[in-house]
Design a protein around this nucleic acid. Structure first.
Lengths: 185, 185
DNA sequence: CCAACATATGGGGTGGCCCTCCGGTTGTCC
DNA sequence: GGACAACCGGAGGGCCACCCCATATGTTGG
């Protein structure tokens, strides 16, 4: 289902693909991650069969919808990896939380990827995980956080908080703060 | 929709009601909180209309399914309120987390009640909230936790963790531990 | 420029879900 | 044991995910 660059699809394929992702982005932002797939297809002006042919699952569609935002976060993590290890990690977790809470459907998409193990490397969750591992390891190495803290646990916590407080950034940050006070050395 | 003791329902009503709750409990335990309501009705041997007449919503049905477990937890909180304030609160949060993670569908049910405000006083969430408020206030009064900690935040965190780690108690407790280390004075 | 063909499309069908209406049934109370 | 309110469940409407296959359309070699 993914698009191997080796065999470029027909132009209408690409057109419909972009249409679908754009429409999905708009509808997910307005109605959440569980929008009707048929509505997306209808709004995009294609048959529902086409949507299913382009995306094997709702999750596959969401992965593409959030690709840009995830990329933005990935680059941000790169930046943060250049500064202070402690504040870098904390800022990363905060910004990730804010993004997830403010981006309708993202928490669901991240959580969905979490259970899948390390199978597919390009899921939203996998990218966020790699960033979190890097920043956590740096903080651990600098003794900036209590030893034994696991990046997977941190990410799981952020995802849990984001999913539970979708649309309410202040609460999300309060809950995250509660948790973060536990990582002092 | 609740059963005011003043006008006892007909015997078949009561029979079907118990059947439905029992069947729902079994199916929710096996398949999770989003089981098909029609399947519950089918398995219970009643028409789907009857199920909808007895329970205005899926949530209403779940509330009854979990009534016993919630009552057990409530009594447990009472016990804990007699001991050390610090360990009482911590133990409560841990046991609540364990129960929620091990009881399929409970996290969803708790979370669903969370957004509803203080309208209905007998929801699962409301009961757990009252217990958590009591124990947290005690701990705050004894300066056993950092001031400013909110029982609602603690409960929200437990519910978030429980929902995100449903069926995986070790992870749930690790995440809770991460958060709990933040409540030292 | 055009034919032939792989690639892609979408209407319509299947089966499932939630929820409601309404004709029929069953407890209950006098 | 009859009358009446309470209760039941099959059937149907609206919506959804997913799939099949006859049709259309980009693409490419002559």
């Amino acid at each position: 289902m993914a698009n191997p660059k080796a065999t470029p699809q027909r132009s209408d394929w690409q057109r419909n693909h972009e249409r679908l992702v754009a429409t999905a982005a708009a509808l997910v932002a307005r109605e959440g991650a569980q929008v009707s797939l048929e509505e997306i297809a209808r709004e995009a002006g294609v048959g529902s069969a086409t949507l299913h042919r382009h995306f094997a699952s709702r999750q596959a569609l969401l992965e593409e919808v959030f690709r840009d935002e995830v990329e933005r976060l990935r680059l941000r993590a790169r930046e943060l990896a250049a500064g202070d290890p402690r504040t870098g990690l904390v800022t990363w977790l905060e910004e990730l939380t804010i993004s997830a809470v403010n981006t309708r459907g993202l928490p669901a998409s991240l959580a969905a990827g979490a259970g899948a193990g390390p199978s597919a490397g390009d899921t939203c969750h996998a990218v966020m995980r790699e960033a979190t591992v890097t920043l956590t390891d740096r903080a651990l190495a600098a003794a900036a956080v209590r030893p034994g803290v696991s990046p997977d646990d941190l990410l799981a916590l952020v995802e849990a908080v984001a999913q539970a407080t979708e649309g309410d950034p202040p609460t999300a940050l309060r809950l995250l703060g509660l948790a973060l006070d536990g990582i002092r050395p």
